[in-house]
Write a protein that binds this DNA or RNA. Sequence first.
DNA 1: CCGAAAACCTGAACGC
DNA 2: TGCGTTCAGGTTTTCG
Length: 284
Amino acid sequence: MPELPEVEVVRLGLAEHITGRRVATVEVRHPRSVRRHVAGERDFVARLRGRQIRAARRRGKYLWLELGGEEVLLAHLGMSGQMRIQPPGAADETHLRVRLRFADGGPELRFIDQRTFGGLSVEDMVAGLPISVAHIARDPMDPCFDRDAVVAGIRRRRTGLKRALLDQTLISGIGNIYADEALWRAQLHGAWPTATLTAAQGHALLRAVTEVITEALAAGGTSFDALYVNINGASGYFDRSLVAYGQAGRPCPRCGTAIRRESFMNRSSYTCPQCQPPPRHPHP
DNA sequence: CCGAAAACCTGAACGC
DNA sequence: TGCGTTCAGGTTTTCG
């Protein structure tokens, strides 16, 4: 599902294909996809028409297009959201939710979303961030990402390590897939209480996070199925490099022990029972 | 501060 | 074949 590397791949594609272009018409084909635009569908359309796309930006899993005048078109892909650049006249996708046509008559921008957990909104920026992104922490690709502060923040928490990694207000961009991969690389179990983490372990974990995110980005992201694709519809191939997530029963590349699937927060965690021993007193 | 659960969705996979 | 169930999971909100 779209986590930081996947969203960054999309951002790069949008930056290349739509910066500088002017929006001509906007078609909202499913109201739920603009539910976060509180002023309603008509206002959403009116605010976009005639606007020029100045830049494509991202923090964590949030993506936005600057429109000038401190306004942005904000997007979150949720579980299944896609941005596609398609030639005018290309057949509508089954789950096409929003379409932007441009004044130059060139390729259009389509927001496609099967499960409609994602969505678009037009909103103001405050201090360089869209209002809805103000509470999201900097991500590991941010030049201002402060490793010492994040390690200290993790150690101040009274929770489990994986919970902390998934908390977008502490460190952003990480979802279930890259959390499991980073924990495996750092040889830490996600149930480890954050308070007992040493600073060295914390830094090792952040290094693992940065490493796995960087490698995934270079591979074009992780695609299990057609639910994540780049703006041209192409899949990433980092799924071939996953060693923990979704790999139950496969041997750990480090020690050969079978990767185990565990239940966690109504979803799944994948760990190597040998390399990532669960703590004696796990955080629930 | 923290966690659990619910709500929001569709389609694939599976059991019977 | 088909019906019902489970699972996939990011974010927000509510409640304890």
